[in-house]
Amino acid sequence: TEYKLVVVGAGGVGKSALTIQLIQNHFVDEYDPTIEDSYRKQVVIDGETCLLDILDTAGQEEYSAMRDQYMRTGEGFLCVFAINNTKSFEDIHQYREQIKRVKDSDDVPMVLVGNKCDLAARTVESRQAQDLARSYGIPYIETSAKTRQGVEDAFYTLVREIRQH
C-alpha cells in the first residue's frame, strides 16, 4: 500500500529536517529553504509493509500558489509548527483551512506536530497545542528532528489516521 503524505507549515519550522531524519536517519543542521522535494521510503507499520511517498513543501509565502496542487494529491498532512515560534503555531489554522477548502472536506487525515521540542526556549505550551488538536479532532505529537524523538511516531500516526479514514 502506498501513502501520499504531505508536510506543511511555516518556513523554518523543520519540515525538511523531520523528513530527512525519518528517511535518512540524520539531522540536517543548516537551513536551506525548500521549494519542493519528495522522498520515498518502505516501512512496516503495524505489520503492514507500506511505501511512504512524502512531499516536503515550501513554507515560504512566495510558493503558496503551489499549495493547491499538492493538497489535492496528498492523502494525509503533517501540519508542523516549531514550539519556539508562536507565529508558526498561529499559521497552522490557515494551512488547515486551505487543506479543507482544496479537499472540499472537513475530515482530512492530519496530525499536528510541534517540532524542536529539544529546545528550552518554548513559547507554545503543550497544552495550547493539545487544545488546538482536540478542537480539530486530530492527534498532537511533539518531535525533535535533532534527537529523533517522536519522528517515526508522527509519520506513522498519520498513516494510521489515513487507514482509519
Results as ranks from 00 to 15, higher is better:
118 D>G: 04
135 S>R: 10
28 V>N: 06
48 E>V: 13
45 I>K: 10
157 T>N: 10
58 A>M: 06
119 L>E: 13
12 G>P: 08
85 N>A: 04
101 R>A: 05
70 Y>E: 03
19 T>M: 05
67 R>K: 11
162 I>Q: 04
37 D>R: 03
122 R>N: 09
139 P>Q: 08
150 G>M: 09
149 Q>E: 12
165 H>A: 14
38 S>Y: 10
134 R>I: 07
114 G>E: 03
99 I>L: 13
91 D>M: 15
7 V>E: 06
98 Q>P: 01
43 V>F: 10
88 S>R: 03
130 Q>G: 09
147 T>H: 09
138 I>M: 05
118 D>H: 00
14 G>V: 00
135 S>F: 10
42 Q>H: 11
71 M>P: 03
137 G>P: 02
5 L>H: 02
7 V>M: 07
66 M>F: 01
106 D>A: 15
54 I>C: 08
159 V>N: 01
133 A>T: 03
16 S>Q: 05
81 F>E: 01
154 A>F: 00
67 R>Y: 06
142 E>H: 05
26 H>C: 10
88 S>M: 06
87 K>V: 06
144 S>P: 00
137 G>I: 03
25 N>I: 03
26 H>E: 13
57 T>D: 02
61 E>M: 15
10 A>C: 08
20 I>K: 04
145 A>M: 07
138 I>N: 07
126 S>R: 11
135 S>K: 12
138 I>Y: 01
67 R>Q: 12
93 H>D: 14
54 I>R: 11
22 L>V: 14
153 D>I: 11
110 M>V: 04
126 S>V: 09
40 R>Y: 07
14 G>S: 00
123 T>I: 07
42 Q>P: 11
151 V>F: 12
54 I>G: 05
137 G>Q: 02
60 Q>Y: 15
39 Y>S: 01
117 C>W: 13
165 H>Y: 11
86 T>S: 11
140 Y>H: 03
103 K>E: 08
117 C>V: 09
110 M>P: 00
94 Q>D: 05
72 R>G: 07
65 A>R: 04
58 A>R: 11
144 S>R: 06
96 R>F: 09
122 R>A: 14
155 F>I: 12
122 R>I: 09
72 R>Q: 06
155 F>T: 02
100 K>L: 05
121 A>C: 05
141 I>T: 04
13 V>M: 11
58 A>D: 03
108 V>Y: 12
109 P>A: 12
150 G>E: 12
164 Q>S: 13
88 S>L: 01
80 V>C: 12
93 H>L: 10
164 Q>H: 08
59 G>K: 01
132 L>H: 11
145 A>G: 13
97 E>T: 15
152 E>M: 10
132 L>T: 09
7 V>Y: 01
136 Y>K: 07
126 S>I: 13
8 V>P: 01
92 I>E: 00
61 E>V: 11
73 T>A: 11
108 V>W: 07
141 I>E: 08
106 D>M: 06
134 R>N: 13
131 D>W: 04
106 D>H: 10
127 R>L: 08
147 T>F: 08
70 Y>W: 02
34 T>L: 03
119 L>I: 14
24 Q>W: 06
138 I>F: 02
4 K>L: 06
4 K>C: 08
34 T>K: 03
83 I>A: 14
106 D>Y: 15
155 F>C: 06
84 N>E: 15
102 V>W: 04
11 G>S: 14
115 N>H: 13
115 N>D: 04
116 K>R: 12
108 V>Q: 05
141 I>F: 04
106 D>I: 12
41 K>M: 09
93 H>E: 14
36 E>C: 02
25 N>G: 11
94 Q>W: 15
69 Q>P: 03
83 I>K: 15
16 S>D: 01
19 T>R: 04
149 Q>P: 05
90 E>V: 12
97 E>V: 06
85 N>S: 09
96 R>S: 14
87 K>F: 10
7 V>S: 03
151 V>D: 06
130 Q>E: 15
2 E>R: 06
88 S>C: 12
39 Y>L: 01
89 F>L: 11
20 I>G: 04
90 E>P: 03
14 G>N: 01
133 A>S: 06
29 D>C: 10
157 T>Q: 12
95 Y>S: 08
25 N>V: 07
38 S>E: 04
144 S>E: 09
138 I>P: 02
68 D>P: 00
72 R>Y: 01
45 I>T: 12
3 Y>G: 04
146 K>F: 15
115 N>Q: 14
156 Y>N: 13
77 F>T: 04
29 D>H: 13
61 E>N: 08
86 T>Q: 15
114 G>L: 05
92 I>F: 13
60 Q>S: 13
157 T>M: 10
4 K>M: 12
126 S>N: 07
20 I>A: 04
103 K>Q: 01
135 S>C: 14
44 V>K: 15
144 S>L: 03
141 I>W: 01
10 A>H: 08
65 A>N: 01
81 F>V: 07
30 E>S: 06
155 F>E: 02
32 D>T: 05
14 G>Y: 00
26 H>G: 13
151 V>P: 11
95 Y>C: 11
48 E>C: 13
17 A>K: 01
58 A>G: 12
43 V>R: 11
9 G>I: 01
13 V>A: 12
125 E>L: 08
56 D>H: 00
120 A>W: 08
34 T>C: 00
13 V>K: 02
121 A>P: 14
3 Y>L: 08
124 V>F: 06
123 T>N: 04
155 F>A: 02
69 Q>H: 07
163 R>F: 09
1 T>W: 09
125 E>P: 12
56 D>T: 01
25 N>C: 06
141 I>N: 03
99 I>N: 03
124 V>H: 07
84 N>T: 14
147 T>A: 07
18 L>A: 09
149 Q>R: 05
50 C>I: 10
98 Q>A: 13
51 L>N: 13
124 V>Q: 04
88 S>K: 14
145 A>K: 04
156 Y>E: 14
1 T>M: 08
67 R>M: 13
125 E>D: 11
76 G>R: 02
